[in-house]
Amino acid sequence: MRLVAEALTVARGGTVILENVVFAVESGGALSVIGPNGAGKSTLLRSIAGLLPPLSGEVRLEGADNDAPPRESMHLLGHLDAVKSGLSVRRNLIFARDALGGEGGVSSALDRVGLGSLEELPGSALSAGQKRRLALARLLCAPRPIWLLDEPTAALDIRGQALLSELVEEHRKAGGMVIAATHADLAFGRGATLDLGLASRSVPAEVDIDA
């Protein structure tokens, strides 16, 4: 499987934010998106997920098993964690799993992200870091091959960041792809870097993006 962006140009509110962005990520690959504030990192991830249709260019998924839209193969972990205050931690995750068409175990996912003992706690009682961990649990109980992570380490403590690195590494070893707008090293190994602060805004050809 291969995720390809060709000459991607995206606008928000009538202003062009990204122009002619080019990259390709293979199964097991990773792409780290960097750039100054306002460079369009979040915009790029949202466009890849299909939330922001591009003005021109395209994002396509090559070698997928079915004809489903690419967004159905993607997880977007954005700035907002989609945690409902009025629902318990468990109910929040059950909804997310079912809404995303997943079949994974909720309890095991919560245990993995360190929230196993907080299953019945209401979402309103969670700290920002715990809400982030709950969002990470979604990645586990509704498996999808492409993870789009927007500043995924935000609000996570050192152990949370280590957990995230583990999850990313496991996901890649299983053939998944990760595209992350982040300043942290997420065990990307020899993953490529896309710098939105540069004029070209494309992944250099010499960078190996398979691993």
Binding site: E72, M74, H75, A82
Partner: peptide, 22 residues
């Protein structure tokens, strides 16, 4: 509004069902 504010709409959009059906 609540789904808009907490990111729930993004989750709904990524569901394997037509957005209009959701």
């Amino acid at each position: 509004q609540a789904d808009h504010e907490d990111g729930g709409l993004d989750l709904i959009f990524l569901a394997p069902a037509p957005f209009e059906l959701m």
